[in-house]
Computed example of a mutant assay.
Amino acid sequence: MIAVNAAVISGVFLHKITLPPFVPYIHLLVDYHFGFIKRALIGALVSLFAAKVPVWLVFAIGGAAWLVTLALFVLLFRRTFGLDDRQLPLFVLMAGSPFFFKNFMHTLGHFDIYGCLFAIILLLIPARSILFVAGAAAASLLLILIHQIHFLMYLPTIAAIVMLRHYLIYGFNRQNTAVGIAAVAGVGALFLAVQFYGSMPVPADRFTEHLRSRMADPSRPELLSFAYIWYQGLAQELHDTWARMPSNLPGIPVFALLIWLHMPLWRYFADAVRALSDEHHRRIVIAAIVAVSFGYLIIFAVVFDYSRWISNWAVCMFLILHAVKTLPGRDAAPVGAEDGRNQLFGWIVTLIPRVGIVRPF
């Protein structure tokens, strides 16, 4: 199954590089030339090294982020569960899920993967010091500057990781409580600033002219067709999402089926929560899952890229499972490779190439 997953991912990559990277390419062109605006951090960093941005840079940066995330996830899984024969079925269901690396490959160049990457780093580094809380806050600020959607997409998961790895283990004292409150306030303030004051302050033709001046090949104006999103406010996003709702609702049963196909993994997750030795810890974990899921419900109501959101929700659940395993408790029974149903679910999950961006597949 691992070999087949590798082949499927290679196929997804070969298909991806044939598609024009409309939104990801613009993200590399937009910088802080006209002042503080949303979704400009990555482009601003690129502008420090490249006056002209070639299209291939989308795949180079996105591919590098994908490879680093994969390598760190394998390291994380090995540390949390081990990579022996008993745990490989869980690894296949998780890393080979169409929600995870296969869909990150399909959305190569989008910014979703950075939230996952920072969350994995926070699961790998020591959590004993107050510096862990400060590091999580710094990562959260960077993610909002990369794209404000991370406020609901990955920041609740990062908060859950901080709670499970630091506060539940080492408790609350005056110092870490103060830092935590300051972090929440700072992150919230930055999100509000980006969301409501981060629109482009110049006319659209001037903005487009600046983007064209940064293109390595200005003869491809179609790559700038999504420049309007820097002028789109919350009200317009809500209008567009609900206007598309009738055509997107039929995808919900497909998403439900895809989630059900991961049932061996979800059963293991439930067993791991029940295996926690502290009832208080179990309640906090359940509350974290509910909070993260509620954040995604809000995203669903605001932005219509449903395949991306459901995929990232599943990834957040995978990451929370790793955080749960750091809490005191007994080991849950591993996903059994000898179970015929688990094998069937594993093969189906393996053969699904990805979920998509808006509609399923």
Rank of each mutant, 00 (worst) to 15 (best):
105 M>T: 01
93 L>N: 06
82 G>F: 14
168 L>H: 12
22 F>M: 06
268 Y>A: 08
300 F>D: 02
335 V>A: 04
57 L>Y: 12
71 A>L: 15
122 L>T: 01
13 F>Y: 13
252 I>F: 09
98 P>C: 07
273 V>T: 01
69 T>F: 15
62 G>S: 11
249 L>C: 07
212 R>I: 01
133 V>Y: 03
143 L>I: 00
92 V>Q: 11
90 L>E: 06
336 G>Y: 02
268 Y>H: 15
177 T>R: 13
275 A>D: 14
9 I>L: 15
219 S>H: 07
341 R>M: 07
279 E>F: 15
251 G>F: 14
26 I>H: 03
217 D>M: 05
226 F>V: 00
343 Q>R: 09
117 L>M: 11
21 P>Y: 10
137 A>S: 12
266 W>D: 13
78 R>F: 09
346 G>D: 05
269 F>T: 00
237 E>N: 10
243 A>T: 01
162 V>E: 04
207 F>S: 03
313 W>M: 11
10 S>P: 03
316 C>M: 10
296 Y>Q: 08
108 L>S: 02
285 V>C: 09
54 P>Y: 14
256 A>L: 15
342 N>D: 04
181 I>M: 13
58 V>H: 05
260 W>A: 10
28 L>S: 05
315 V>G: 07
58 V>C: 08
249 L>A: 08
131 L>N: 02
